[in-house]
Each structure stands twice: as C-alpha cells, then as structure tokens.
C-alpha cells in the first residue's frame, strides 16, 4: 500500500512535468498547426541560461524569467527565420526543420555548457514531506510544480477561449487567408504563437530540471512522453494536456514501479493504442471534422 501511494504521488509529479511540456505542444499546435519536435532542446537551452544565472547568484525567480525571455526569443527567431520561408510548401517541411533545430540546439548546448550532467537547484525543498513517521514521495517542490502547471493551463484556457488575441491566433492557424480578410495580421500571430509556445516550454524545462538533471538532451525522453500525453488528451485541448500528462505520469510510474523501468515505453504505447482506437483524435477532441 505504501508503495502504491508513493508510486501514485510520483505519477502525479512526473505527470505534472509531462503536462507542462504537453501544454507547450498544444499551444504551438493551436497557434500554427505544427508539432514542434525541437521543443525539448529549446527548453533545455533556456534552462541552461537560467542555471548559468543562478550560478552567478541571481535569484531563482529572475533566472526563471530569463529562461522565459530566452524561450520567447528562440520562438520568435524560429518562426521568422526558418518557418516563414517554407510556409505553403510541403507540410512535412516544418517537422524536418524542427528536427534540424533539435540537433543543432543540443549540439550548441553541448559546446557551450559541456556534455556533463548538472544539478539544477530548486527553490523549494525536494525532500519528501513527513506524514506521521514516514516520508512520502511528495515534496514542497513537487507541489510548486503542480501549482505552476495548473496556472499555465488556466492561462492557456483563458487565452484561447475568452481573449480576442487567442481567437485571432486560432483563426490564423486554421485559415490564414480568411483571417487576413478579417484584418488579422497572420504573420504576427504565427510569430507570437511560436514565441509563447517556446516561452511556455522554457518554464516546463526549468520545472523539470531538478528532477531529471540538466544535460544537452535531457528533455528528449520527457518530450516523447509529453508528446504522447498531448496526443492522448487531444492536441487541441489544454485540459487534455493536463489529463494526458497525468495519465502518462501514472503509466510510467506504475509500470516502472511494478514491472520494471524497461517496460515504461511499451506501457505508454499500449495505453496510446487503446485510447486512440476509441478516440482517434484524443480524449478531449471535438467531434472529428472531416474536410470535404
């Protein structure tokens, strides 16, 4: 029973990180209809910037802000310099550009900060909270991560559901031409979408770093599970990202804890196959639109 409680708690905390990364993927998908396979590497780069500042005695919160700003800049540059020239070409091209970015950014991170594992200091205690006599696998830092993820999700929901900016972003992504006819500056919306998504991914990177250690490709694994999570929930839905993220967190935690860590990805695959066979566009997809 004790193990089950702990695995559940670990599931929630890892799931929260997956959810944070998945929300970045949801944001970019809603805003530009692309899957950003480079998101993990971008987040890692921002996280390195943050840790460099923390090493120089900058406070955690300022470093977090610096990571977000780095993310905004990376996102803006990616859209302006790489994605815009290939708009209206083969829809696979953005995916390949993102893969190229992934390779380049990981290599550059390795060149600047070296290919060694680094600790990332956390602003809250990472030791488990004491319940009665035993410590459970839930720390103050874990609670902070969960709160942060909830705040991000609510912010995303508000942005897309109630603000005109969110509406413009979605219109620009779904139908650039109609959006332009309605006075939406489509190019600006795409840039903004990229900037916000990478900014959000950078927060996810900083949130994940104390648990996974910092390494040029430390987010690769997290990113794959987060991508799976986003798909489970439905790429169009921020709530789906949270549910999918937690779901993947439980799968990884229970499968890893009871059956051995080498079966985690197989567990993920099985869950994904089961869910998608009932809901081919994820749990929270709007009913499927088929374009005629």
């Amino acid at each position: 029973m004790h193990q089950f409680v702990n695995l559940t708690l670990i599931g929630i905390t890892t799931g929260a990180v997956y959810a944070a990364v998945a929300m970045g993927l949801v944001l970019i998908w809603r805003a530009t209809r692309t899957v950003n396979f480079a998101q993990g590497a971008m987040a890692t780069f921002s996280t390195y910037v943050a840790v460099t500042l923390i090493d120089r005695n900058v406070s955690y919160w300022l470093a977090l802000l610096a990571a977000i700003v780095t993310g905004l800049i990376i996102g803006t540059l990616t859209e302006r310099l790489l994605m815009r020239p290939i708009a209206n070409t083969n829809p696979l091209n953005p995916v390949i550009i993102a893969i190229g970015m992934l390779i380049v950014l990981e290599a550059v991170s390795g060149m600047i900060w070296g290919a060694k594992y680094r600790e990332f200091p956390s602003n809250f205690s990472v030791t488990g909270i004491k319940v009665g006599t035993s410590r459970i696998a839930l720390s103050a830092f874990d609670i902070y991560v969960m709160v942060a993820v909830l705040v991000l999700m609510v912010a995303l929901l508000i942005l897309f559901r109630w603000t005109s900016l969110g509406l413009k972003m979605r219109a620009a992504a779904f139908s650039p031409e109609i959006a332009r006819l309605l006075g939406v500056r489509v190019g600006r919306m795409l840039t903004l979408g990229w900037a916000l998504a990478v900014g959000m991914a950078s927060v996810a990177g900083v949130l994940a770093a104390p648990n996974v250690l910092l390494y040029p490709n430390n987010m690769d694994g997290v990113n794959v599970f987060a991508f799976t999570a986003a798909i489970l929930g439905g790429l169009d839905s921020p709530v789906g990202a949270l549910v999918g993220g937690l779901g993947m967190g439980f799968v990884v935690s229970y499968v890893g804890g009871y059956l051995g860590s080498s079966l985690e990805t197989i567990g993920g695959l099985i869950v994904l196959l089961i869910v998608l066979s009932f809901r081919p566009q994820g749990i929270f997809a709007a009913s499927a639109a088929r374009r005629v």
Binding site: S164, F174, I178, G183
Partner: peptide, 29 residues
C-alpha cells in the same frame, strides 16, 4: 478591411473548426 471593405470568400469562407459565435466575433475583431 479598415477601409470598410469586407469580402465573403468563395466556398462559404467560414472557419469550420471555430464555433459560430467565434466566427462572428472574428468579423468584428
């Protein structure tokens, strides 16, 4: 658009993935 010119594109140019209300809101954004 700002000159008071509005176009209704061919093929019922509405955005299928958005709700009806959202489509209408877009018109006045």
């Amino acid at each position: 658009v700002y000159l008071g010119v509005a176009q209704v594109p061919e093929g019922r140019g509405v955005i299928g993935e958005l709700t009806i209300e959202e489509n209408l809101r877009l018109g006045g954004l």
